[in-house]
């Protein structure tokens, strides 16, 4: 967390940001090609009972990019993430206004099928949450739900998913071991592989490294940077956003304050509140 008391003036990024940004190697900046919006959120407001958690948020997520949501605790960034794949459906009293489109299809429209949406928009959670089953059965959970039954097909799916999550070499000989026996970082990558096994179009990640140690964190970050997927990641760690994201959205008290290319947002924020946050004046 940035704790600089006297952040630079407007346009001067903190040294922490510089370090984080410099750590990126040959990482494209967005906008070189015409980016294509794959998620469009239009005037979203969200309520838990009488409490309004999100205020009139419109936002577009670009295909094949990493988009980071940052902001202080309770700012609504996780709430917004979870509504992209309807994870609030079973929360009593949750209510949404506005529209979300994923690949042009309505997420909350009358014809929308939440199960289908969750298969196309995968999710990785804050704490690694593998099922108390073998690594193999964890990865197979999603494919089995959609009816893949043959062992040979599942074997292919498991290997592909674990390779995609950069975990294959670590676990290929212990696939029948309980996933709970792995280290925290490996467990989180099992969860990533489990989500990837369904070949989702988009992967949502809700503070995926906050329960991990630095080494495990850097492995997950490496994976995110090299995946080439459309990823939306919530993080409370600004350096992490700087290290891995193409675009960053800053949420504050249920509002989307600022959204733009990561370099711009961190080096020349347009909004006073953004600047105060990234320079550590509040958090």
């Amino acid at each position: 967390m940035v704790t600089t008391e006297e952040g630079g003036g407007k346009g001067a990024p903190s040294p922490e940001f510089r370090d984080a940004w410099d750590a990126r190697d040959s990482f494209e900046t967005p906008g070189e090609e015409e980016p294509k919006a794959v998620i469009k959120a239009d005037r979203i407001s969200f309520f838990y009972g009488a409490f309004q958690a999100l205020r009139n948020i419109s936002l577009e997520i670009m295909a094949d990019e990493v988009t980071a949501f940052i902001g202080p605790s309770g700012c609504g960034k996780s709430t917004f993430l979870k509504l992209l794949n309807r994870m609030h459906d079973f929360v009593p009293g949750a209510r949404l206004a506005g529209e979300v489109l994923v690949s042009g299809q309505s997420v909350y429209g009358p014809d929308a099928d939440p199960v289908d949406i969750r298969r196309r928009v995968g999710m990785v959670f804050q704490r690694p949450n593998p099922f108390p089953k073998s690594i193999y059965d964890n990865i197979c959970y999603g494919p089995r739900l959609v009816g893949v039954r043959k062992k040979a097909e599942l074997d292919v799916v498991v290997e592909r998913a674990l390779r995609a999550a950069a975990l294959w070499d670590d676990v290929k000989d212990v696939l029948t071991k309980s996933a709970l026996e792995l280290s925290g970082g490996q467990q989180q990558r099992v969860c990533i592989a489990r989500a990837l096994a369904l070949e989702p179009d988009i992967l949502l990640m809700d503070e995926p490294t906050s329960a991990l140690d630095p080494i495990a964190t850097s492995k997950v970050e490496d994976w995110i940077r090299s995946s080439g997927m459309t990823i939306v990641i919530v993080t409370h760690n600004m350096q992490q956003a700087a290290r891995i994201s193409d675009r960053t959205a800053f949420f504050y008290m249920g509002e989307l304050v600022e959204f733009g290319p990561t370099l711009e947002l961190f080096t020349s924020p347009r909004e006073r509140r953004t600047e105060n946050y990234i320079t550590g004046r509040f958090g």
Binding site: N85, M87, D89, F90, V115, D116, R118, R119, G122, M123, F125, R127, N129, P130, F131, Y141, G142, L145, V146, C191, R194, A195, L198
Partner: peptide
Amino acid sequence: PASFREAALALGASRWQAVRQV
């Protein structure tokens, strides 16, 4: 843990599938 339920739902399980399988 609630996280089991979340994980199953996020992988496209129906509510009953999440209850029965996880």
